[in-house]
Nucleic acid binder design. Structure first.
Length: 284
DNA sequence: TTAGGGTTACAG
DNA sequence: CTGTAACCCTAA
């Protein structure tokens, strides 16, 4: 009675996809046993995984067993308004490795509550201003939906910056509009997603970013590497992957693209693998 | 343990 | 009222 419905979070979906990529479909128990995914899917059962996977993989056209899945997450949960993520993704070259692991597992979005960035995008999309929406307009829209949001302006400002910085939004003058270019490109070629993150991390010391094919190469290289090198590399790779996850999360959610999701899963899996290597080499 | 069918709850 | 997603039950 207390729990209306335990809707799946982005982290859980990502973990599920990553688990399927890693272990294969149908191995729900194996996925659930995996320490990497166990952290995220701890509250889910193998049946839940199966059901969710079925929902996400129902073929359109009424041919499959179920209807089409749709990650429309705009259902307002309890009228709560706890805090949002402030530690979204300020990481490009971190130092602490333990925190990284935690950040990786729990991602950018916390547990319940509709994501603010989703609200923002929805607001902008709804207002259909070709010139973009002003911040006041966005606030007005959001406040209309959720009567009173504490510190909305502050959170909104931070989120707008994040979205703009990640290329999700385009800020022209004092107005924000959705960056269509990224979405379309990602839709056609998901590999661009990772490269987009490279731009995002911009002036980083090492522009060594993982493209889809490179991830495997990196993993392969790490096998014949000294523990120190592998550890250092893993730390950085995890940071990059985390940023990629954050971006892919949004892109996947917005674009509803299977390719983007698959890419996200790939990145996630690679990050998980690197995390494992890091812990093995680091904490001996 | 998993696949499949059915049921309940929620949002539009 | 309808569609969708989570939940539940049962047979391989």
């Amino acid at each position: 009675m207390g729990v209306p419905k335990q809707r799946w979070t982005s982290e859980e979906e990502a973990a599920l996809k990553a688990g399927v990529v890693k272990h294969g479909p149908g191995k729900w128990s194996t996925i659930l046993k995996d320490p990497e995914f166990e952290s995220v899917l701890r509250l889910r059962s193998n049946v839940d995984l199966k059901d969710k996977w079925r929902n996400m993989h129902s073929m359109p056209g009424g041919c499959g067993s179920r209807q089409r899945a749709r990650p429309t997450r705009s259902k307002a949960q309890p009228v709560f308004t706890a805090f949002k993520d402030e530690n979204d993704m300020q990481i490009c070259l971190p130092d602490s490795s333990t925190e990284l692991a935690e950040t990786l597992q729990y991602g950018s979005s916390k547990r319940p509550m509709p994501r603010l960035d989703t609200l923002i995008l929805k607001a902008i999309a709804n207002q259909k201003e070709s010139r973009g929406s002003s911040r006041a307009a966005i606030i007005e829209y959001i406040e209309e939906k959720h009567s009173a949001l504490p510190n909305l302006e502050k959170s909104l400002k931070a989120e707008l910056k994040t979205l703009t910085d990640s290329g999700k939004l385009v800020k022209v003058k004092h107005r924000y509009k959705i960056a269509q270019t990224l979405n379309s490109d990602v839709k056609k070629n998901p590999s661009l997603l990772v490269q987009e993150v490279k731009n995002e991390c911009g002036p980083m010391s090492a522009p060594k970013i993982l493209t889809k094919a490179e991830i495997d190469a990196e993993l392969e290289k790490m096998r014949g590497m000294t523990p120190q090198q592998a550890a250092a590399m893993a730390v950085k790779a995890v940071a990059e992957a985390e940023a990629a996850i954050a971006a892919a999360e949004r892109a996947a959610k917005e674009a509803e693209t299977a390719e983007a999701d698959a890419n996200l899963a790939k990145v996630f899996a690679a990050a998980a693998a690197m995390r494992a290597v890091k812990q093995t080499t680091l904490c001996t």
